[in-house]
């Protein structure tokens, strides 16, 4: 019996049940809390040591000690989390929220205030 029409049950159930897909973009996607979206910095705790810059596999982070600036090329970042692991002050974190598409690659700069 199972040799024929074995898929019919599934088809009928799918026909009369709600879709499994969401109505994106009308219903925005909710990301779980661990989603690696982008790197964020609490600049007030940062000591500009540059460990994140040296450990970043794609070389997306640039720390300028003189100008007290922490730069990240969002489009180069691979969200691996190695900088977060390396940071001695634990001021870096990866939070949900992916980088928005853009027409050009740009660098984001965070300046440490005195």
């Amino acid at each position: 019996m199972a040799q024929f029409m074995s898929f019919t049950k599934t088809v009928l159930r799918n026909l009369f049940s709600k879709p499994v897909t969401t109505a994106y973009p009308n219903v925005p996607r909710e990301y779980p809390e661990r989603t690696r979206g982008h790197v964020e910095i609490r600049i007030e705790d940062c000591i500009l040591c540059g460990l994140c810059m040296r450990s970043c596999p794609p070389g997306a982070i640039h720390v300028d000690r003189e100008a007290k600036k922490w730069n990240i090329a969002r489009f180069d970042c691979i969200q691996c989390g190695y900088c977060v692991e390396k940071c001695p002050k634990k001021c870096l974190s990866i939070v949900p929220g992916y980088t928005k598409p853009d027409s050009s690659k740009h660098t984001e700069t965070v300046k440490k205030e005195e």
Partner: peptide
């Protein structure tokens, strides 16, 4: 996978000496 590691394709939870999460 996304709930546990934060990624759907690339998980980045391995490190030498154990796991990260």
């Amino acid at each position: 996978f996304e709930i546990s590691t934060g990624g759907r394709v690339i998980f980045s939870v391995n490190k030498i000496g154990g796991v990260l999460k």
